[in-house]
């Protein structure tokens, strides 16, 4: 990622500032890169074609404030993450005038993703709608699971993808997971998720939506996909925010196959 950004940004620096286009990157990637290489500053974004404006202030790895049009704080930041077309410009050394977020960049991206999920009408409802559609004609899955899994593996930071049935049957796997005993992994994930679902049920706090298991810098992220469980393995926890951002649609798509 850093090489990509160095290339994008160094080209733009000749023009007197760091600027670029959202077609070549996205705000989450940009923020992670800039916050790791600059002490503080503001990223100003203009969305195309409606010229809506947004800005994100960060300082020392912390996301201080964000606005997107009239939206502020985490809500504004979540909205900004969904912008697909537009231009951005980075101004280093600028202090925020107020504090509307106050989370680490990674944490803010994760929270924004959850907020986006809920804002979009709850992932579970979306999945239910997909399931209902699937029920009408289960054979008309848009793409095969293998194809979607390969797309998941293309997301930077994802090392392996495993699909496990609720009973622990390993339906499919791709990536470096093939090095490990995949059946043991499947059984362990199914046991863990079953335990977690039982806990959620006992506490009457809805169904399980995400599970993150940290092992040092490595993380296993699990999500329900249809009646199965998808697990992605990343050796670099710092990429978790962007992984969540980039995999959201793929997981929903994957849910149609199981």
């Amino acid at each position: 990622m850093s090489d990509q950004f160095k290339q994008i940004l160094s080209l733009e620096q000749k023009d007197g500032g760091l600027k670029g286009d959202l077609s070549s990157t996205n705000i989450a990637d940009l923020l992670q890169f800039l916050s790791s290489s600059s002490k503080k500053g503001v990223i100003k974004v203009v969305r195309h074609p409606d010229k809506e404006q947004g800005q994100v202030y960060f300082d020392g790895g912390e996301l201080v404030s964000a606005t997107s049009g009239k939206l502020t704080g985490l809500t504004g930041f979540a909205d900004l993450l969904g912008w697909q077309e537009g231009s951005f410009r980075f101004f280093p050394g600028v202090d925020a005038q107020n504090r509307t977020v106050g989370l680490s960049v990674q944490h803010a991206i994760l929270e924004a993703m959850v907020s986006m999920d809920h804002g979009a009408g709850n992932v579970r409802e979306q999945t239910a709608a997909v399931m209902e559609e699937r029920g009408k004609d289960m054979e008309q899955a848009v793409r095969g699971a293998t194809e979607v899994m390969n797309d998941l593996l293309e997301v930077p930071g994802i090392d392996a993808v495993v699909i496990v049935g609720r009973d622990g049957f390993v339906i499919d796997s791709t990536g470096s997971s093939l090095r490990v005993n995949i059946d043991v992994l499947g059984a362990s994930l199914a046991h863990a998720v079953n335990g977690i679902e039982e806990m959620g049920s006992e506490l009457s706090i809805d169904h399980f939506q995400d599970l993150f298991i940290e092992y040092g810098r490595s993380v296993i992220m699990c999500k329900p996909v249809g009646d199965a469980i998808a697990a992605v393995v990343t050796p670099d926890a710092s990429k978790l925010g962007i992984i969540r951002h980039k995999t959201k649609k793929l997981f929903l798509e994957l849910g149609q196959s199981f």
Binding site: G135, M138, G165, R166, D167, F169, V170, I171, G226, D227, A228, S257, F258
Partner: peptide
């Protein structure tokens, strides 16, 4: 059915499981 396919596997008849079930 999940149990039945697990039984399949236990006796070496087939290593198989359910992917989708309506």
């Amino acid at each position: 059915l999940r149990g039945a396919y697990a039984a399949f596997t236990a006796w070496g008849w087939a290593k198989a499981g359910i992917v989708q079930l309506k």
